[in-house]
Amino acid sequence: MAKTHKVAVELSTEATLQLFRLEGFAIALTRTLDNVYRIAISDFPIEGELDYYVHCTGWNKTPWTLKISIDGKDITPDLVKGEIEKGYSAVRGSLKI
């Protein structure tokens, strides 16, 4: 059984974040005052690498950046970044923890 961790996610963008997935699970993030979508999960099961998926829509060339912390440690010191093209950006990737 996968060990559970405390996960904090911050996705900064002026675009509209449509869907965010972690390890294949759709996770509802809430947009806050500063256009950062945030969520904190206390017991999230992670096995090996952490898979993520970001789908944004909006004006072209609008950037987005993803920051994830696990048990208080930032695992994205080099921010995961993307940019809108043809009205959207859908990026899948994985992070070593």
Binding site: L17, F20, T30, R31
Partner: peptide
């Protein structure tokens, strides 16, 4: 402007 929105969820 404050804008509240939520992304898709389970």
């Amino acid at each position: 402007q404050y804008f509240y929105a939520k992304t898709a969820g389970p």
